[in-house]
Design a protein around this nucleic acid. Structure first.
Lengths: 198, 198, 198, 198
DNA sequence: ACTATCGGGACCGCCCGTTAGT
DNA sequence: ACTAACGGGCGGTCCCGATAGT
């Protein structure tokens, strides 16, 4: 049995978990490497053994989120066969996300201003956006081809859909008690769907 | 005339201008007080003479933005008399804002994670959101009363509208060259209006 | 009276003095900014107010040494009118320098390996060498013109003279008790002078 | 044959080679153990298995240099029988050394300030100096006995000769393109020999 | 009102050396 | 003999804010 690899993987996970928690609580800049280490119960040596720096940890976190979302999306495709149904299902997922106050988007947004100055990080940072934009675009494209939606530029529509999701998540963070965001999300998708229908 | 007071006010403005510029370029956390002072051409003493700290400067900036937006909203009301027209006009303004990539929203978002830990600042920080939520809500309310929109909870609808705006602004920042965001905004509002119509 | 400027200058000097002492005792890399500050009885804030960093402090020290040596050289010119006499006088100064174990040259040498990687610092670092090389060269040139020395390339001779000085200083540091370095220096110059004579 | 022992010795050599290269490129303090390991293609464990630390590696390197120089000196003695000829031959070797800018002296010098605080290392560090001082001293001694040189204290003269060599090597490092250091070395020895002659 | 000087703390990155494991 | 993971600490830099002085 390879104990090294096991232990290493565990430590790596602990660091990522701690980082996620710290970032959510204090933001990207508000979180020091020392705090992450302390939260994870590891030394700085371990931290810098597994990651090149704070920024890399963040990017790794981003990838972890992506994997999670990819899984959810995969699940999405299994239950629903037609694009409209899948878009509707997506809305439900997003609605649930905003219940468990999902700080991830905010952390992501907070990180943007940093990454904007570092071309290399910037590319990695934008990737998830492009990814989901493409995913939604294809969904919309299919919907138009099936005649469910009014003919339009699928890319444009996808951007509108994503805008709605982003905007609702942010508001859900800004004013969690101000509304039943799950319902708002539902209705938002309904309006969008109706507005896109023939 | 009190020359001292004039000069003082000018310095205050210079600091605010410098802060706005620095925040836009380096983000909230990436901007140090020293940089603001340097940009403004003032000493640190002057800075702390006028403001209690960086956070207060940000709040002051926020108020300045609010004043500007209030003016724009006022203008909006003058030219268009019916709610639908005003909502449409609003879309045009937002579309133009995203042309000149307006970093204000991003700075605002970046600041959120900080303010979240300070209840006092948190209240002040959320104010602009409530203000515009209420503004749009009333607009929608009128539209429903006039029969232009399908009956629904105006507050909910307003949140959906604002979500669209926020989401588009962020995407415009993420991928400025990726789309003609003015057109996307236009179409977004069209779909929304159609989806809200009877 | 300008108390600010006075205090500032005093602090700056204190830092420089402390740095000189620390560098001599622990070498360039072995000396931390914290130690310099502690030795000088100043805070890090003060340190970084006066200097951009450790490297800059070192360069400032270098300049201070240069000023001192320039003064000594000036003195040299007053008492001796002919080049040979001045060269001989120089030997006496160097001999005395090696008594008060002069770590400056060693610190300088230790710094070389650092500066070699930073072109900007490298230039500043080499300057003192060029300076004294030129000084000795002119002295030799005059000596040749006066017929005191055998005709030769003054630059080459100057490099040989400087080599002797450098090498003796280093050995004086390596083995302070091993010889009466003042006498060695005297004899070294005598041999050189004799070897250069017609 | 013991393959283990062979392999071990090879690893030891690889580490020494890597260390020499790293020291030359980054100086003593600028070189971390990690860098040496990486350059050698070995893990840190291997490093600390063979050496007690960076300092010990340096001392081992020093010994390796000494062996090399001893060989060169041996060669020197074979071709030239009279002391003057051997001194002249030595000058040619040194001249060639300074062509391929030999950083060893600089590394050595950089290390001095460190070793100065550790009496044990200090002794080992000074050894090479004493060794060559003695070598040159004997050479000079023989020269005087043969009547080639003016009677004088051989130890003093040897220190002067070594000073010239050291000083020229350093200057060759400081300003490699500034002169034809091989020629300068030649002339330096000529002057010295002339100055020492009867 | 405004400046120059200063205090002290915190952050990120790295380094040296050790230990558990192969 | 050698690897990979890890511990703990230091290093330079910068930052926020305060104070002494103009």
């Amino acid at each position: 049995v390879n104990k090294h690899q096991q232990r290493s993987e565990a430590t790596r996970s602990r660091i990522l978990d701690a980082a996620e928690q710290c970032f959510a609580q204090n933001g990207y800049d508000g979180t020091g490497v020392a705090l992450i280490c302390q939260t994870a119960g590891v030394s700085k040596g371990a931290f810098y053994h597994h990651f090149e720096g704070k920024q890399v940890v963040f990017l790794a976190l981003l990838n972890r989120w992506l994997s999670t979302m990819d899984t959810q999306i995969q699940t999405l495709g299994v239950n629903q066969t037609n694009p409209v149904g899948r878009l509707a299902a997506a809305s439900r997922i997003v609605g649930q996300l905003s219940q468990v106050p999902n700080e991830q988007l905010l952390i992501y947004l907070a990180y943007l201003n940093k990454a904007a100055r570092d071309p290399k990080a910037w590319q990695a940072t934008k990737e998830p956006y492009y990814r989901y934009q493409a995913f939604v675009r294809d969904l919309v494209h299919d919907g138009i081809e099936e005649g469910a939606f009014h003919p339009a530029n699928p890319a444009t529509i996808s951007r509108i859909v994503i805008a709605l999701v982003m905007g609702l998540l942010i508001q859900g963070y800004l004013d969690p008690e101000g509304a039943d965001w799950e319902k708002v999300t539902d209705q938002g998708f309904n309006i969008l769907l109706k507005g896109m229908g023939r």
